[in-house]
Design a protein around this nucleic acid. Structure first.
Length: 399
RNA sequence: GGUGGGAUAGUCAAGUGGCCAACGACGGCAGACUGUAAAUCUGCUCCCUAUGGGUUCAGAGGUUCGACUCCUCUUCCCACCA
């Protein structure tokens, strides 16, 4: 029993600190039905979750399966202040309303994966605001500058003379203090959070919370390009609220190599299953496309439904494999005659008539499945299916 | 506070008086090839019913027949020194 649980917990992890502690907690759960807490912090600045976030959520769900209560920590305190971090564009300071709105959409999305009955939503504003200047000073006195500079990010920036705001030193402390207040048994986060996660351990020791939290780090999920981390700003993400068709298509568009990574971190299949799939692909008995389709189905079904997933698959095949026209196309209409380039722009499938001309010249534009080459073409009365490239469709009615 | 350097298309980055709608790289789009991909090859990548016209090189003025290029001011960045 314990072995199985542990293996599942270890799956895909980048690093575990104090695994002994986790084993003890699991043992206590099996022997005495004692539960424990797992903390994970979320930043309510971005209301849309993508698959990168779900890696963490799924790990939390695994813990729930094995006796954990999840402390779903919302960093509303830090969000209200803003983050001066130099590297990414300075975070906006959010209004309370925005934060509240983000939080509610956040949690609805999160509960597609997490078990709500075993989740406790906590807000760090509650105790951080109460900390006060004195508490803050006490907190900072636990740490030396030298220790702070151990953090990779800081030391690099210091060496390269990139500015570091003093408040940036405070953030890890606050995050660590969250663990003190919540008396978390385990905290999980991305590998980029290592320093902050360890801070929780250190502060728990100082503040004499009986035990130090174990730390489990998940790797950062690569985006669709397979190189950079999945993030909204890089537009290489799969959002959990994406339409089934989009979601299915996006999963299918990842490279074969990346697919295994997604299997490990996102699929609920067992590791043995995945290993045998991989072996099958390697010896040629399984087509990689087929395997990837299964992954796409699984992921789509998780956030929508089994039916949505299979119809997304059918739709996809219709468009791509058989190069037919999708079922749902946006419809437009206009009066009288219309010039083809203008029509494409009006139907939102081309950004400008200049671009439309170029695409027509290149043979990327089809009307009713027929390639066209005449830039001057005028459309007169009738219904047309306009297509640019493989993906952009529109239906136009000319009256 | 002082002294230098910089701001060019989605990003990086050439261009230092006309040959500039602006080299190149990345990204993006399209075509071929495929498995829908990836890799590869090719073309395109400011706007406009276009063998032409318009608007661009941080902003505002100026010099000049002509300015991304020279001058002045403004804004913002960066480096060195305090």
């Amino acid at each position: 029993m314990l072995e199985i649980a542990l293996n599942e917990i270890r799956r895909g992890c980048a690093e575990i600190i104090d695994e002994e502690r986790i084993i003890k907690l699991l043992k206590a759960y099996y022997d005495e039905a004692k539960t424990y807490t797992v903390k994970a912090g979320f930043d309510p600045t971005a209301p849309d979750l993508h698959l990168g976030h779900t890696v963490l959520l799924q790990k939390l769900a695994t813990f729930q399966k094995y006796g954990a209560t999840v402390q779903f920590l919302i960093g509303d305190f830090t969000a209200a202040i803003g983050d001066p971090t130099g590297k990414s564009a300075t975070r906006k300071v959010l209004s309370n309303e925005d934060i509240a709105k983000n939080i509610s959409s956040y949690t609805t999305q999160a509960f597609k994966i997490l078990d709500e009955s075993k989740t406790e939503i906590v807000y760090n504003k509650e105790w951080l605001e109460a900390l006060g200047a004195l508490g803050m000073l006490q907190l900072t006195s636990n740490l030396t500058v030298a220790r702070m500079l151990e953090r990779d990010d800081f030391s690099k920036r210091y060496a390269s003379q990139t500015p570091i705001a003093v408040s940036e030193f405070i953030y890890p402390l606050l995050q660590g203090y969250d663990s003190v207040h919540l008396k978390s048994d385990i905290e999980i986060g991305g590998t980029d959070q290592k320093f902050n996660l360890l801070m929780g351990r250190q502060l728990q020791k100082v503040y004499e919370v009986k035990k130090q939290q174990a730390v489990l780090m998940m790797p950062i999920l690569e985006g669709l390009d397979g190189v950079q981390k999945m993030s909204k700003s890089l537009a290489n993400y799969i959002g959990v609220t994406d339409e089934p068709n989009d979601m299915f298509g996006k999963v299918l568009s990842i490279s074969d190599d990346l697919m295994w990574r997604y299997f490990e971190l996102l699929s609920t299949r067992t590791l043995e299953d995945i290993a045998s799939l991989k072996a099958g692909v390697e010896d040629g008995s399984l087509h990689p496309k087929k395997v990837k389709e299964d992954l796409a189905l699984e992921i789509t079904a998780r956030f929508h439904s089994q039916e949505d997933a299979s119809s997304a698959k059918a739709e996809f095949e219709k468009i791509h494999s058989k190069s037919q026209i999708p079922t749902d196309i946006q419809e437009f209409s206009c009066e009288g005659e219309i010039w083809i380039a203008k029509a494409l722009v009006d139907c939102n499938i081309e950004p400008s008539t200049s671009q439309a001309r170029r695409d027509i010249k290149q043979g990327a534009v089809k009307i009713n499945q027929e390639k066209i080459s005449d830039i001057q073409l005028q459309l007169t009365g009738g219904e047309y299916i306009l297509q640019v490239g493989k993906r952009k469709f529109a239906k136009l009615k000319v009256n």
